[in-house]
Design a protein around this nucleic acid. Sequence first.
DNA 1: GAGTTATGTTGCATTAATGCTACATAGCAT
DNA 2: ATGCTATGTAGCATTAATGCAACATAACTC
Lengths: 81, 81
Amino acid sequence: MLFPMSRNPEEPVYNRIEAARISLGLSRQELADKAGVHYQTIGYLEREEYSPSLVLALRIAKALNQEVSELFSLNPIKKGK
Amino acid sequence: MLFPMSRNPEEPVYNRIEAARISLGLSRQELADKAGVHYQTIGYLEREEYSPSLVLALRIAKALNQEVSELFSLNPIKKGK
DNA sequence: GAGTTATGTTGCATTAATGCTACATAGCAT
DNA sequence: ATGCTATGTAGCATTAATGCAACATAACTC
């Protein structure tokens, strides 16, 4: 798989968007609406096909009531919580 | 002044990069090296001429030993603190 | 079966973020 | 005065992030 990812193809960004979204009982469309983006964009992010802009990351974090650092990481997300 | 800013021209991202950098006694060049970006990029960010990618925001936060949410905000940065 | 919802996939167009180069300026040394 | 460092500015090229449309599919309900 390719990692286009920002300006740094070598350093992808991992996230827990899907888990956080599901735990709130939201569909992608609903999260997209709360964050003000296209619903496909949420899909791309959950599949980690690319990493978001900071603006988008901040909006998603707000929509999910999470800290940016809890949702996104430069290191692979550890499974246990 | 214009606000190109990500995909959302209406919603800029504010930051405290300069204050944090100076309090660590770093030049832009040094911070840029630590974050792995061009030194001009730090300048653009400090002047808030555009907002960084999430990857870059995470790297800068790490280089400055700060939380992303402490360095960047969707709301204007309050002076005190 | 028909319809709806949620998701995945592909492709295309636009634009902002970044790198880089060059030049200017100001300050601070020597 | 000469140099060096830090910074601002402008321009150009590249590419990733996003929007959007179209289509497929699976699950579920009626």
